[in-house]
Write a protein that binds this DNA or RNA. Structure first.
Lengths: 220, 220
DNA sequence: ATAGATGTCCCCCGCACGGGGGATTGGTGG
DNA sequence: CCACCAATCCCCCGTGCGGGGGACATCTAT
């Protein structure tokens, strides 16, 4: 793999700019898109199909770990490299549980970061040396926790879950608006949020999601 | 049942006015509300709980057949009497599949229309004489299409069943076209036929139909 | 006190979709 | 031979939908 397509995900645009500039040192790396939130990362990953997603853990809304979980579940080919400032246990293990391919600290030297991107792009796993110790320690005592431990549904607000219920029944925005006694524009907003948070393309995918996840039970 | 409560549904307000006036000839009929769209019909049916819904087929937005389907599914007690100007096959069978109790032409004489309302209010089914012919014709060659049966699927051509399979997976017309290696316009035609034959509003309802009828099996 | 989350509502824009036609080619059956 | 169906493709047209924004009020937690 010569050319590696990279998606940057960080809520701080200065950090994104810095990373983008840093990665352009290597001409075989191409930053195809940048996202400021986890939800945006999912949308952009679907659109641009990057080889590697450089993902910050700390973000408002859908955080890096939840986003990673959804990304990997939907697009297994994508490699997620987690970036963080501190080496917090929760982040490390949460990220690996979610299916991340690697985990590097932001204070890593530029050339090492570039090397890390290439490593995960090649399908290898990668951990910052200072992190490796923690991982093998914990691996020894604990079995690997389940992938779907925390439901994506929990990222939805109560109202959004309600809207998803109506989406699952195939109702239009107008019909949902009538049912909830709000404006259609409000329903549109809720629907947008539901689709973004769940990483779904459109309301049709929401129907399928509902059946596949038991929100809709096929009546016989 | 002495007093019959009626909901009028027609996008043409002149037609509604005409029907309303016509029905007031019979003091045992009471027009409790009027709707201009299918969606409105559903809302008003919830609110006013009419005995009979006099429903036009041709309406912008949610058409009479789709509205009937939802109405009957949600409120089985309500009797839907379909009104139309022309006796088109798609309308007739789509409406009956959707759960309509009757089907009358707008050119029916006033006293016959009033009689029709009373008939369906009593729980009987009713068809305009000119429509009955078509129904028994079709009955002769194939069993009455019904909601729960798989017989409706047999009205689809092989290609249409194939398209339904892709619809069930939530694919767009473009994606189905690529899968079948035909033009998108061809897929559009197939999709139209599938929706018409199954009496479905849109591809979203097709997804739901597929799950409810075992075309899609929810995994796990 | 300030920030964040939530719910409500608004705008513009472009595209996919479904309904309304119609046309052509190849079979198949009466 | 002719009628019919199935499958393929075309047009126009209106609208529903999703993405991109933003605005405002309320409430909660820091």
């Amino acid at each position: 793999m010569s050319q590696v397509r990279v998606l940057l995900v960080d809520d701080d645009h200065l950090m994104r700019a810095g990373l983008a500039g840093l990665l352009t040192i290597d001409p075989s790396l191409e930053v195809v898109a940048q996202a400021a939130t986890g939800a945006e990362a999912i949308v952009l990953t679907r659109r641009y199909r990057p080889d590697v997603v450089l993902m910050d853990v700390q973000m408002p809304g859908l955080d890096g770990i939840a986003a990673t979980q959804q990304l990997v579940a939907e697009i297994p080919e994508v490699r997620v490299l987690i970036l963080t400032t501190f080496e917090l246990d929760d982040y490390v293990f949460g990220a690996l549980r979610a299916g991340a391919s690697g985990f590097v600290l932001k204070r890593t030297r530029p050339e090492d970061l570039i090397a890390a991107v290439h490593t995960v792009a090649d399908g290898e796993a990668l951990l910052s040396p200072s992190v490796t110790r923690r991982v093998i320690d914990r691996m020894a005592q604990q079995p690997m926790p389940r992938l779907s431990g925390t439901s994506v549904l929990e990222t939805l607000t109560p109202r959004e879950r309600e809207v998803l219920g109506y989406l699952a029944q195939g109702l239009s925005n107008r019909e949902i608006a009538d049912a909830l006694v709000v404006e259609e524009s409000t329903v549109r907003t809720h629907v947008k949020h539901v689709l973004n948070k769940l990483g779904l393309r459109d309301r049709i995918q929401a129907v399928i999601f509902s059946y596949e996840n038991g929100i809709n039970e096929p009546r016989q």
